[in-house]
Design a protein around this nucleic acid. Structure first.
Lengths: 214, 214, 214, 214
DNA sequence: AATGAATGAGATTTCATTCAT
DNA sequence: AATGAATGAAATCTCATTCAT
């Protein structure tokens, strides 16, 4: 019950008109992801929905509002999903693993939202940008906290947990950009590979020989 | 230092007009990086150059051609720079370190080109896209080869070198997206942090305790 | 009186917007006839209609489409008018006279359409050209049939009815190019003169003395 | 053998530069005939000549001047050729035949000039239009005189010689519009057909039965 | 006589948005 | 809630022409 778009359809099932708003979001999501916000016209969205352009304005007051809606609901959805996931999981022996697994699974199911969220930030007007940033930082804070806890517990060796947070999220978030093409690996395999890499990247460990004598 | 744009200006210094093409590139680079290809108008570029819009067409036949020029020369520049770098370096004790260091340094000096190269791929028409892809794969192949060699030598423990290549490059390439803002860390510090993380992510090592008993 | 433009206005009289399409046709007709298709801008048409240029695209998707519409409806109108004319006329004692009279009268009332139809053929894109050509040939075939029938009946002496068809139509269609200027002759007088000339040009008759001994 | 374009090249054979003016005329002639004056750009002409657009202005001060040059020289050429033709011919037994034959032959060799001369009149600025009109009327006057003489001599039966002049010239001038396509008839055959038709159209003759009782 | 670059105007078309119905 | 038509601005690109070289 966490993705807003799906949610909307579920929550207000009967009201005929609301379906249109939903379909506008779906259409915009698809088109923004493929062509980018600036390159998509309201006409295209309307055509995809099967409606005249003017009709869109019954549901969103501007094109910008559609973008904001998509990005904000993606972030809130992500946070909500994490909370649900965390609530439903016993205290995990390895919180980082829990986070990485969650992140990969969640993102691989929402490649379009992910794309938009990382590419269209600059097209958000500043007020909307701020709102989205709040959510983004909230999400990053989750990982940062996990890392800091690990450092305290002596299992991770990280100089700058904020930097590490970004590095890890960038690495993970890059997956959907190429995942589509490579049919060779299952989502589970990718998950395992990235899990290993993330672990390695932050774990306290003997330095590699080449860096030892620095 | 063989960046093509700079190079062009050096090679044909006298002819007054050629400078304009150079300035168009610079202007487009700046604007595309900031606003995105689709959101930048030829008028804006012309204004930035200090010329009427029509004059741009003496140097580039379409807006698309400017984008292609920027992206292709960035990739070729990157490859050329790597070759130069590799040629000038003694066989390094740690090739991965050499690559990561090179990549970070090169990219941190070209944040705009990097931004464009990873964000505007979808705005390339298919023919141009193909040309750029060729270069991109060539660059990825360098890292993949380093990783495979490391695996053979037993120093890296990697299941899928192609996947690891992408993960590492995504991680590193993400730096310029946030580097600007954070004034707290020097380029050297960032370099060190990422180097450690990359090493950890691929090195043969004892598994972290949490994963040991799997 | 079945001219399509007029007809359209009659058929869909109420809907406000449809009138605009009609007015666009009228404006384009006038301007194309005066200045030629290539020399008329969409802005000019819009101004003539009393609307912003963009509004034209609610009714015609390109400038070319306006031209096609005008030329095609002119030809179809002509054919339709002939059929109506032929249906309403008793089997005429002289079909050629019926045709020539019809042609002159019809064309003298539509000087602008005639002008465009004979001048702007080369500005039709090939697909549209073909469509118009089909109608044109259909119209020429009417005259050719009349001439061939006359030849069979022995009243006309024509070597190549296809060539004669073109010669006669060229002669008649030339009228509107100068008719405007010369106020000295009534339409009826012109009709009589041309009728005589056409008759003479195809009739079986004693050769002129000069050509007798060839 | 007096066509101006050909002539220019012959008269001033050595001067290298003049050849360019000649080639500009040839290129413009071809392009104007095919696409129409308004639809042809100076760039296209320059490309056809193999030169940069600016270079055209060393030979013609405006695009309009090229058109005027082409049209005026065509008309003067026509008149000059007629005079030469008339001078070299013994007083013909049938002056109309001489004229028609001359007209058809001259025009069939200059389809592009003919096309332009009858299609681009409206694109001449008024001063240039007047100059061309003077020549056109001079040429029409030749035919009118022949017709009037024939009327006086009782061999032609024409109500309005000015109207007949236009009708005949329109008929003859239409030939090049379709001649290209029809490979079935030789120029001589066409000549014979039209000669017959012209003769018929103006000759004193028994009325066709259908018109007798008017 | 020709080039390469520029201008200033204007071409067709598209855009986000509005609004009466 | 949707349509069809409109607006006003702006998009990319082309135009005839000019001019220093």
């Amino acid at each position: 019950m966490s993705h807003q778009i799906a949610t909307l359809a579920e929550r207000k099932p009967a009201k005929k008109g609301t379906q249109t708003a939903h379909r506008v979001r779906r259409a915009a999501l698809k088109l923004f992801a493929r062509q980018g916000y600036a390159a998509v016209s309201m006409r295209q969205i309307a055509t995809e929905v099967g409606v005249q352009p003017g009709a869109l304005y019954n549901h969103f007051s501007t094109k910008q509002e559609i973008l904001k809606d998509l990005m904000l609901s993606h972030m809130r959805d992500l946070l909500e999903a994490w909370q649900e996931h965390a609530a439903n999981t016993d205290r995990p022996s390895d919180p980082l693993e829990a986070f990485v697994t969650f992140h990969i699974r969640h993102h691989l199911q929402r490649t379009e939202e992910v794309f938009i969220s990382y590419m269209e930030l600059r097209n958000l007007e500043s007020q909307n940008f701020s709102e989205v940033e709040v959510e983004r930082r909230r999400y990053e804070a989750i990982l940062t906290a996990i890392l800091e806890d690990g450092v305290k517990r002596g299992v991770y060796r990280i100089k700058e947990t904020r930097v590490a947070t970004r590095a890890i999220i960038a690495m993970l978030t890059g997956i959907p950009t190429w995942y589509r093409e490579s049919g060779m690996l299952s989502a589970e395999q990718i998950e395992a590979i990235y899990l290993d890499m993330v672990h390695g990247s932050v774990s306290a460990m003997p330095l590699s020989p080449a860096r030892k004598n620095r």
